[in-house]
């Protein structure tokens, strides 16, 4: 027994060290980026205004990333974020004070939009679980369904502009130099951390991602939890749609365009592998900050903003490759 005591103690320390290093690498990348861009562009990059800009652009992907990484933890994926953002965003705009004067239910428009998102997410999860169809293809379909709902809501009339100016200004208004949108995103991230650390749902998500067969044998209600996590991800996408609509000041079906790449790339570069079981919300927040800083720096350096999705795509592939590199072997089946 004495030998086991010794190794047990040693391994605990070793484990703690690995954990710390793992989280640290991403922070070092982030600080490195900040340092590089500060040196390259000392007049425009390291300013408080630009910090607010970066945090503001990071807020929507952070909100999306919290939900999406909860799904990715189980080894699933949710490709529907852009469509769900569109549907929830249009719902929010049409239920708020707007130039079309459709309806104004005040703050209740927020929960209404979240409910639309959660319902679409739950639909994705339910079809995936009940019909046993891979989640990426179901969520691809729901992406389109969401876009279609947004298009139907948009209809054939004029663009619905939000008329409540203080509401439109809210996301970019700052509190102690930090934009409200990012504060909201931090609240969502805190909720995500609570779920994954303190609840059976969150712990089960890690267990499912690690070994789903064992999770079922252990009596974890895998299907139910997966549907709940998809609904949570949908609600996050819905909230992101609201923030996006506020930022636009108008309703648009394509309010989420480009967000899917950004979110997925941020999740993987943050340290949550697509296979699931590791990583989590805080990792994803770091990943979003890395990418937002990168784009901001590139755009300030005069790079064409339209390459953003391309950079996200490359980062996504590079991060997936890096995460899976050690698992390559001769007869591995990969689809």
């Amino acid at each position: 027994m004495t030998t086991l005591t010794g190794t047990g103690g040693a391994t605990t320390k070793r484990g703690a060290a690995t954990k710390w290093r793992g989280g640290l690498a991403e922070v070092v990348i982030l600080l490195g980026l900040v340092a590089v861009f500060s040196i390259l562009n000392p007049t425009h990059f390291p300013t408080l205004t630009n910090l607010a800009t970066i945090l503001n652009t990071a807020s929507i992907p952070v909100i999306l990333g919290v939900g999406a990484s909860a799904v990715v933890l189980t080894g699933r994926i949710d490709l529907s974020v852009e469509g769900v953002m569109g549907a929830a965003g249009m719902t929010f705009v049409l239920l708020s004070a707007n130039s079309r004067e459709t309806a104004d239910i005040g703050w209740l428009a927020w929960p209404a939009a979240l409910a639309v998102g959660a319902a679409l997410g739950a639909l994705t999860g339910a079809i995936h679980v009940l019909a046993k169809v891979p989640s990426f293809i179901v969520s691809l379909g729901i992406w389109y369904v969401g876009l279609g709902i947004a298009a139907v809501l948009f209809g054939y009339e004029m663009i619905p502009f939000l008329t409540n100016e203080s509401a439109v200004a809210w996301p970019t208004a700052t509190l102690a130099g930090i934009p409200n949108s990012f504060l909201l995103a931090l609240c969502v991230a805190a909720l995500g951390v609570l779920i994954e650390r303190m609840t059976r749902l969150g712990r089960a998500a890690y267990a499912i991602g690690n070994n789903e067969a064992v999770a079922r044998m252990t009596g974890i209600p895998v299907s139910t939890f997966v549907v709940i996590l998809f609904a949570f991800a949908g609600a996050c996408s819905g909230l992101a749609g609201v923030v996006g609509s506020l930022a636009l000041g108008a309703g648009a079906a394509n309010v989420g365009v480009g967000m899917l790449f950004l979110t997925l790339a941020a999740i993987v570069i943050g340290g949550t592998p697509l296979g699931g079981g590791r990583g989590g919300t805080l990792r994803t927040v770091t990943g979003v900050l890395i990418l937002s800083t990168l784009y901001n720096g590139l755009i300030l350096a005069g790079v064409d903003p339209s390459i953003q999705s391309g950079v996200s795509g490359l980062v996504l592939v590079a991060a997936v490759v890096a995460a899976g590199w050690s698992q390559r072997e001769r007869l591995r089946v990969f689809k």
């Binding site: 267990a207 991602g209 690690n210 044998m217």
Partner: peptide
């Protein structure tokens, strides 16, 4: 074959 969650 062991059936533990190695990440927990």
């Amino acid at each position: 074959e062991q059936s533990l969650f190695t990440n927990l």
